[in-house]
Design a protein around this nucleic acid. Structure first.
Length: 267
DNA sequence: CAATGATCCTGTCCGC
DNA sequence: TGCGGACAGGATCATT
């Protein structure tokens, strides 16, 4: 499941592969995967891919002439750079066609991923409200204290809320809470500043470590060259039976998603 | 307003 | 062998 480290890894790969290149067309093979804003210029193509940035789990590619392409991989989306593309691939939902007959495939088994083309000056209308970036200076214990004050929702749910922190997903929230020694069931508003500091520190660490090895490949996630990331080998609790200390883990459901945690290590 | 649940999807895995 | 059902989950929308 692409979270911040995976999205950043894909984005870096995409930037390497197509920065400065001309996009000749974007074809859509599954209804709704490619969405066009209503007021786009004609002709729409060609457009040069000029800039590459990330906000939360959204990739934002700046195109020449004041346009932007927003890409969200959701759960099973993949971008694959292909210098010699042929027929439409299995599960290929869209294709970014480049000059010299090259392409980037958007492959997405479960079809939840989206490509949105819009004017750059209207980007705000096409991105949801997103909270602080967890690897930037604004992500502090004090920020979390203010954002979570009075909230009754479990800390696990709050950390998954992209309006509070943008980029964390199920895997890294489970890992960060384990490392911080905090139970995922704790009420958000009940956490002390010291505990929030541990959450901030461990979230940053786990994200940075995962980013350094190209993300976590549990099932579908791949880099742009279709290679796997390596952080799955370093997970301590996600989809595990026992924690590093040998304690049995509990697997519960929170907000419809699996939580793995150690009742002995996390309080 | 906040919190929860349903929804969108399909490949994989499990039990019978 | 094959089938039905549960499960995986990010974000959005509807409901309580």
């Amino acid at each position: 499941m692409p979270e911040l480290p995976e999205v950043q890894t894909v984005l870096d790969g995409l930037s390497q592969a197509i920065r400065g290149r001309k996009i000749l067309d974007i074809e859509c093979y599954y209804p709704g995967t490619l969405r066009l804003a209503g007021n786009l210029p004609d002709p729409l193509y060609p457009r040069q891919a000029e800039s590459f940035r990330r906000r939360g789990k959204y990739m934002i590619i700046g195109l020449s002439g004041g346009l932007s392409l927003i890409i969200h991989l959701r759960m099973t989306g993949k971008l694959v750079y292909d210098p010699t593309p042929g027929e439409v691939l299995a599960h290929e939902r869209a294709r970014i066609k480049l000059e010299r007959d090259e392409a980037v495939h958007f492959i997405d088994i479960r079809t939840f991923g989206k490509l949105q083309l819009c004017r750059t000056d209207e980007l705000g209308q096409y991105l949801p409200n997103l909270g602080v970036e967890p690897l930037e200076p604004g992500f502090t214990a004090e920020y979390l204290r203010d954002a979570l004050s009075g909230k009754k929702a479990p800390i696990k749910n709050a950390l998954l809320d992209q309006r509070i922190v943008a980029g964390l997903g199920n895997i890294y929230v489970c890992e960060a809470l384990y490392r911080a020694g905090i139970s995922p069931l704790r009420g958000s508003g009940s956490l002390k500043l010291k505990e929030l500091k541990a959450i901030v520190k461990e979230s940053r660490l786990v994200l940075a470590e995962a980013l350094a090895v190209g993300g976590t490949s549990i099932s579908d996630y791949r880099r742009i060259d279709d290679k796997t990331g390596e952080f799955q080998h370093f997970l301590q609790v996600y989809q595990k039976q026992e924690c590093p200390k040998g304690h049995p883990l509990e697997n519960i459901k929170q907000a419809g998603r699996g939580t793995w945690w150690c009742p002995l290590c996390q309080k």
